[in-house]
Computed example of a mutant assay.
Amino acid sequence: MTTFVLVPGGWHGGWDYQPLTDRLRRLGHSVHAITLPGLEPGQAAQRPSGPINLDTHIDYAAEVVQSVPGDVVLCGHSYGGMPITGVADRMPERIRHLVYIDAFVPHDGESWWDLANEYYRSVVIEGARGDGLHVAAPPGLDPRAVPHPMASFLQEVRLTGAHARIPRRTLIFASGWDATPFREQYDRLRDDPAWETHELATRHNVMRDAPDALTAILTG
C-alpha cells in the first residue's frame, strides 16, 4: 500500500481529485486529498480573517505529510506545484515520489506569478478587482471553486535545494489546451535525466479528463 498526499490547484479543493482518489482507494492505497487554507467550501461567502500566503499553504501541507506514517507520494496540480516543492524541500526524507500534475516546478525565489503566462496573470488581475486580496474563480470552473488568496500567487518560494534529493520526480504535461503555461517547462525537463516525464493529450484538469492514465502513472 502507498500513501498519497494530493494538493489541488488554484481555486480548487481536495474534491477536485475525486476521480483519482476513487481509483487509488479501490486499489488499496491510502489517499489524503487536502484542501488548502482559504479554499474551503463556503469561502466565497465567509473569507478567512487572517492573511494567507504561500507559506501558509506549505505549512499546512507539511503538517499533513508529517501526520501520516511512512513515506508518501506527494502530488500537486497546477498551483499545487508551488506548495509541494516547499514541503519537499523541508522534509525530503518523508517523500518517496514527487509528482507535478500539469504543475509549476519553481526554483528558489520564484513565485506563481513569475512562472504563469500573460493569460493567467490577466486572469488574476481581473479576478482581484473585488477587494485586491482574493482572486475570484475564472468563468467555467467547477461551481465549487472559491476565491483564491492573492498573496499565495505573489509570494516567492524559498528553497535550500534539499528537494533535489528525492529519489523520484515526475512531471505530467497536459498538451491538449491552448492556454498552457507549461510547454517550456516540459521541453526543458524531459531532457533532464533526474526527471521522469509524461505527455498526455488532455486538458488541464488531468484528474477529471484522464483519471485512468494518471492512475497508471502514479502506481507504475
Results as ranks from 00 to 15, higher is better:
Ser49Gln: 15
His57Val: 01
Glu196Trp: 01
Glu199Cys: 12
Glu196Ser: 12
Ile166Met: 03
Pro37Lys: 06
Ala194Asp: 15
Pro92Asn: 11
Gly161Ile: 05
Tyr79His: 06
Glu184Asn: 12
Ile95Cys: 10
Leu189Gly: 06
Gln43Met: 10
Arg208Cys: 03
Leu200Gln: 05
Pro92Ile: 00
Gln18Trp: 08
Gln43Ile: 07
Pro167Gly: 13
Ile58Glu: 11
Gly132Cys: 13
Val72Lys: 09
Ala216Val: 00
Asp187Thr: 00
Thr202Gln: 08
Ala174Trp: 00
Gly42Leu: 02
Arg90Phe: 07
Gly14Leu: 02
Cys75Ser: 09
Ala164Met: 07
Pro41Val: 00
Ile84Lys: 08
Thr197Asn: 09
Pro37Asp: 06
Leu189Cys: 01
His97Glu: 14
Glu40Phe: 01
Pro211Arg: 07
Leu39Gly: 03
Asn205Glu: 12
Pro181Ile: 00
Trp113Lys: 05
Pro41Cys: 01
Pro51Ser: 14
Val87His: 11
Thr215Val: 06
Val206Ile: 14
Ile95Gln: 10
Asp209Tyr: 13
Glu63Tyr: 01
Cys75Thr: 05
Pro193Thr: 00
Ile101Gly: 08
Pro167Tyr: 06
Ser175Ile: 00
Trp177Ile: 04
Arg23Lys: 12
Asp114Ser: 10
Thr160Cys: 03
Pro8Met: 02
Pro167Val: 00
Gly28Val: 07
Glu199Gln: 12
Ala45Phe: 09
Gly9Cys: 04
Thr197Phe: 02
Pro147Glu: 01
Thr3Lys: 13
Arg190Ile: 05
Ser111Ile: 00
Ala164Phe: 00
Arg169Cys: 08
Gly50Gln: 15
Pro51Arg: 14
Leu115Glu: 01
Pro147Met: 00
Arg94His: 06
Pro139Lys: 05
His97Met: 11
Arg94Asp: 10
Leu27Val: 02
Leu27Met: 15
Leu189Ser: 08
Ala179Tyr: 10
Leu218Tyr: 04
Pro181Val: 02
Arg203Lys: 14
Glu184His: 12
Leu218Asp: 09
His148Ala: 05
Asp108Ile: 01
Gly70Val: 02
Ser78Glu: 03
Ala136Pro: 04
Arg158Ala: 13
Ser175Glu: 09
Gly38Pro: 15
Gly38Asn: 12
Gly176Ile: 04
Tyr119Ser: 10
Val68Ser: 15
Arg47Trp: 06
Ala210Tyr: 03
Val64Ala: 13
Val135Asn: 09
Pro149Val: 00
Ala45Thr: 11
Arg47Glu: 14
Thr180Leu: 04
Leu98Thr: 00
Leu171Tyr: 15
Pro193Ala: 01
Val31Leu: 11
His148Leu: 02
Phe173Asp: 00
Gly127Trp: 10
Gly109Ile: 02
Ala88Phe: 04
Gly176Asn: 08
Val99Leu: 13
Glu110Asn: 03
Pro19His: 05
Ser78Asp: 07
Gln185Ser: 12
Gly70Cys: 08
His204Asp: 06
Ala61Ile: 01
Arg203Ile: 00
Ser78Lys: 07
Arg47Met: 15
Trp11Asp: 03
Phe4Glu: 07
Glu118Lys: 10
Thr21Gly: 04
Trp15Ser: 04
Gly28Asp: 12
Asp212Arg: 12
Asp108Cys: 10
Val7Gly: 10
